[in-house]
Design a binder for these strands. Structure first.
Lengths: 227, 227, 227, 227
DNA sequence: CACTAATCGAGACGGTACGTCTTGTCTTAAT
DNA sequence: ATTAAGACAAGACGTACCGTCTCGATTAGTG
């Protein structure tokens, strides 16, 4: 939510709530002048929505995706099950929205920029290594990956919310480097970003250790050693 | 698994059934030399074992991992539930064994070897593109990925059964090339294999299209254009 | 109910809505002379009230009492749920009012009067037999009986609306007969009415067949054979 | 259950479990001589069955039929919901069986026999009056009547379990009297029983008071005053 | 050959969660 | 103040599976 001043009273679409419920009515039910109405009935409760996302995040972190249940979310959020089914429709959808709204802080923020591309990436990977090895974080990653693969519809949503940002961040760094020192990179920036991001993510998915040696090899591939 | 040249019907444990219940059998179910060791009671039914794996493969292909149930497998295989729980203990274990025994033919065999590395990889990727776009195959891939992420214990098993072979295949090709024409590759062979495999797998996982353009970019990264 | 000559649209309470919320209304919804009394706000919609009763009757006939829901009534009547809760408060109340207002024509009208008591009763019972055997009617009877037993508060209301009329009809016939030919009846008229009505209703409730033999036996009990 | 030495291990049919699950298998699954088998798998748990009936009776007495839920029964009996659905299939069925097995002691046992028919019936009715006026008993009666009308299939079951015994008891008494003093009764014994039973039951159903006056009137109808 | 022991298919068991349905309340804008 | 609309918390519905258990029936080895 954060800085999103969504107007109250209007039914809103979530990331996954593709079929918008808003219908324009040309006319009221009994007589009167044609009015353009946006909705009738009680508006969606923003309070409940946030409670659901928050509860989901909490349960996910300490319990994993498999043990996460709609009933559990509802109970923990103090919300009726129907409210969840009305607006999300599946466990994965809720997780995706919680991710998108920042309730699940995935430990994969963009690398810093000190001007030294290789150094920055290296720092970033080493930081990730530390973060990922925390059991809480590893459970969260597992959970996100599960949400991903459990429902094909959410796959693109997660790709946008989680994968894309990483790729974009890397892409921007490679792009800037390429602009400053043309010809130094082995391939087009966006592609380097993908190769590096993919290697990293697959590594994380399979819970393989991010050794310093592996990191150096990865860097060798995508960015030339400083002369 | 790996270097376990398990003779059909011989004493075996499953991949993931860590706490093996059967250590040594006196005799094969059908044929083989009698080995006298302590063991009493009815021996495990190989027939049932195969029926389970076969049923699992079938149900997985048309239904996906989420809809796969132990009860469904048992019913479809004409087997008691207890038999499954006795020998496997979890859904993922069965899937992994079915995969390992080749009942689930993942469409990611190794590239051919015509001497032209770039050309071979290109052909391989184009073949994959065609295969992956078949709905049946895409369902299977989704299923495998789900089995992977649903249970962390199986993660390494699948990595070995599915990911490793691809990586190894690529690694061998890159290694051979490197030996023949040292210095031509941008990085160490095993690492090129990983970068390429990871990019590919992530692409497949997220069901993103394998365009010809993307393929060429990927090749540019890992193998030099023929002069 | 009974002696409540309720003018359409005038101030009314329902049969069971004990705590009447509306005492006096200034004016009818449609037409009628303005009566100046304290009352503010939108008046109750007679249209909605009738729509509810009609919808209830319809749903009850094809679906039975168990499948009747407040939501269903509201939707079918094009009325808000709150309107029903405001004015009736329970499913049974609506059914009772629908019954009282004649929307549910129970097939138990009074017997004709041709002067021949036994013959009249016989004709009446034979007519009932035919009616009751129609599946639609049997469903309605079941529904009414269910409404009866489901809520103890409505029990007396239904007794008044459904049972009493029958009993009264019979009582009047027996009474007239007794006045005309004193001493011919086996018991006091009101009691004969009850015995006969009760036998009949229990028979109907348990969906037992009204055979000609049974009818004759019943008549033998309560009214002497014509000499 | 009580004195019913139902053989253990065989699936049993309840009153309402019309479709027996027993199938005769001519032959075992894999080879062997033809065997006539009565069942396979774990036998039905008599313990669970009794727990369900007992819990139902308890909940019914203090709570009524409306508030009785399958979930409540299951929880109270320490039984899975599926066990109830497997063997009964509806709330009413359970209630009917509980009634049939004597867990719900309906307060309508047969009248005593002191040789004085009218006196016995009078005592019986006065006893009922006292019993019925107890709030616990009135709740139970309501509950039984609700179970009756809520499901048409159970109607005949309840008729057999509850109504029939009363009718039979009365019938026997009237029959004996008729045999001893022919011509004294106003109608055939079975019919007197029905008229009297019906009057009584309808009275009870509608929770109308059993006044002494009403009792005497009823008796006047069906049994002659002692000379 | 009998006996012992482990497995087999079958299916009932106590549970948990599902996704749907309904209840009775509440909150809008419109009348 | 009442209306239609419809979201809300609550909780029961009936179903589907879980993983365990308890049957009778196999099917080997051991005595």
């Amino acid at each position: 939510m954060r800085d999103d001043p969504r107007a109250r009273g209007g039914p809103r679409t979530t990331i996954v709530d593709v079929t918008s419920r808003i219908e324009i009515r040309g006319r009221d039910h009994e007589g009167g002048t044609p009015v353009s109405v946006e909705h009738r009935g009680r508006p969606r409760s923003e309070k409940s929505r946030l409670a659901v996302l928050k509860a989901t995040a909490g349960l996910l972190v300490d319990g994993g995706y498999e043990d996460l249940t709609i009933e559990g979310i509802a109970a923990s959020a103090g919300v009726g099950k129907q409210t969840i089914y009305r607006w999300w429709g599946s466990k994965a959808s809720v997780v995706v929205e919680a991710l998108a709204e920042g309730y699940l802080q995935a430990p994969l923020a963009a690398p810093a920029d000190t001007g030294d591309l290789r150094g920055d990436l290296r720092e970033w990977l080493l930081g990730l290594k530390a973060e990922i090895e925390a059991p809480e974080m590893s459970r969260l990653l597992q959970a996100i990956m599960s949400a991903l693969t459990s429902a094909s519809e959410t796959s693109s949503a997660i790709h946008e919310a989680l994968i894309q940002p990483i790729m974009s961040g890397l892409d921007a760094r490679f792009g800037a480097h390429d602009a400053a020192r043309p010809g130094e990179l082995a391939a087009k920036p966006d592609f380097l970003a993908e190769a590096m991001g993919a290697s990293l993510l697959l590594h994380v998915m399979f819970a393989r250790p991010l050794t310093a040696e592996w990191i150096d090899q990865l860097l060798d591939l995508v960015v030339p050693r400083s002369p």
